[in-house]
Amino acid sequence: MLTLQSTTKRYGSLTALDGVTLTIEDGDFFGLLGPNGAGKSTLMSLVAGLRAADSGSLALDGTPLGPQTRKARETIGLVPQALALYSDLTALQNLRIFGQLHGLRGRELSSRIEEALDMAQLTERRHAPVSTFSGGMQRRLNLVAALLHRPRLLLCDEPTVGVDPQSRNAIFEHLLKLNRAGTTIIYSTHYMEEAERLCSRIGIIDHGRILALDTLDGLLTRLPFEDEISFPSNDSTAAILERLAPNGVLIRDGDTHRFRPHANYPLSAFFSLTEAAGLSPRIFVTHRPSLENLFLHLTGRTLRE
């Protein structure tokens, strides 16, 4: 179990992490969602022991974490945001170096390397220099290099930056498999889709503070609406606006109307109304509320800002 208690980290006058208190249970797939500069990487670097907190505490299973606590860090693996690989060396050489640094030797090292190469789908390219790999291949190798020592806690700091969809899916599958096998994962991202797809619990972070922390469903219940229906703004749809208004919130967004029905107004009632007005159901698009909506609701900004 990883615990952070009132953890603060400053860089000069900038407070990157502001009194964060957080508990991550064993086996969690914990998503840390926030825009760039929110404090995600700082939190990761504190847990990884790269930096020391200015105040507060961090502990893994009760053992304090920090730059001086090497023993505790042996059970942690870090997948850095950057491609932390020796690009002039081959995939095999890279994995051998990182494995040896974790104390692996002989057959055990060889079998872990084979396993890692297989997982990264790089067995055939094991003797090729990393610099000749595509971005996706490098990302996959970057991930498996952190798994050689079979960490109990895996820190993934935006591990899919610049990755093609195919490689991204492969990485997701590996991570979900690892999590199912018992590895606790902390996954930082500013892509809400990734957090929604992967994470069992999500913390929304901004300006160094955790704004919300819950399961995906739990977080979404904090929104004042459940669904949103968008439809074009034209003469034919103008007729239903007056009758919709008492049952929800109507927002005009350019050539589109967005309707957020009140909780007691069922979608069936909405579609009965539109059918009676002679409107085709195909012009209506129903959206489930997302973390993007929640972030906007909490901060007044979008995740990309």
Binding site: S45, L50, L78, A82, L85, L101, G103, L155
Partner: peptide
């Protein structure tokens, strides 16, 4: 350092 290798090394058992 620029490649992020310090992060990988120092998060492990390297000083």
């Amino acid at each position: 350092k620029k490649a992020g290798l310090f992060q990988r090394l120092l998060s492990g058992p390297v000083t």
